[in-house]
Design a protein around this nucleic acid. Structure first.
Lengths: 172, 172
DNA sequence: CCGTTATGTCAGTTATATTGACATATTAAT
DNA sequence: ATTAATATGTCAATATAACTGACATAACGG
């Protein structure tokens, strides 16, 4: 199946094949990437949504609910269940905004940070190993391609961080 | 937030930051990647699972149920609902195996191929654009990193296709 | 004061997956 | 030939996680 001889003589097939491999890479990588954290989450009776909330609140301390919803792209009702659970169990804190007292600004507690570290440990290891094995140049390419795949609004979240080229350099 | 000066003097922070960016790239890319196909699937009252089944059966004509389950990593009951729906509506065909008549070998009908093309059109475009904009070298790096992130069993699915280096070369 | 915004919540629904138990047909092993 | 194991399918109950819609409160901005 998909014999090389066919590929060689048919650049269109080759390109098509290449694209479909890209699709599958994304599928498998995402699944493998999330698999272990999912197991850990079960022990807390949490789901992937909890992980995402903790991750993005940890990365954006003081974020308000609207902005978090914009990142997660879920309904406020969905977030509510997850978030109130995390607050109730002491992983996330809500503080009333100072300029705008309607807002609830979210931060992760120390307990929350600890959980975040646990949850992401395997993920960071996976990425770190993949980066190390692939080498600096490959990592640069990986980022380029991934960024190129993002929709405009999501890409904007990275622009600030990528342009100042503090990160493009090393990844030893 | 995340000021460059801090990054420059603290390689550990930089590395950590880099890994977390990788995590988010994967999250956003996967979501943006699947967003449009999801919309189309709604029109058929199908879900992402249907897309996956069609994709992998299309890529592996004559695959049996067990192997498909191994790829999808879902229960046979879950697959059953999706698959029987696809068979009932004429997107997928089942044929009794010849060597082993217990098996149901799955193939995509012409109608199924058509749906697959529709569903993946946007995804292929996304990848194609990202590849083109990033360049051949970046694509090579992207693949290396993605492959490096896969678990052993998933990586094995690509080994055959990657080692014969019919694909590493061009991506014009 | 009033329209809008940020947030929260109640209720009902839908989609999708899971587990467990069991059934059928077929193959493979003794 | 009988029997154990395999490939597949199905019924039923449950779980999860999202959704929509409606409504409520508090605070902002003019």
């Amino acid at each position: 199946m998909a014999d090389i001889s066919t590929r060689k003589v048919n650049p269109l097939f080759l390109r098509e094949e290449e694209l479909r491999q890209g699709m599958e890479l994304l599928f498998y990588a995402y699944r493998d990437f999330t698999a272990e954290a999912d197991l850990l989450l079960e022990q807390y009776n949490f789901g992937r949504a909890h992980h995402r909330v903790i991750h993005f609140v940890s990365r954006n301390p003081g974020i308000n609910v609207s902005d978090l919803l914009a990142i997660l792209q879920i309904t406020k009702q969905s977030l509510s269940r997850v978030l109130s659970q995390l607050v109730r169990e002491g992983f996330i804190e809500q503080k009333t905004g100072v300029q705008d007292r309607r807002q609830r600004l979210l931060t992760v507690t120390e307990k929350g940070e600890e959980l975040e570290r646990k949850l992401s440990e395997n993920q960071r290891t996976l990425i770190a190993n993949a980066y190390r094995e692939a080498g600096a140049e490959a990592v640069e390419g990986f980022r380029k391609v991934m960024l190129g795949m993002l929709g405009a609004s999501d890409r904007a979240r990275f622009d600030d961080e990528f342009l100042p080229n503090g990160l493009r350099r090393r990844q030893g």
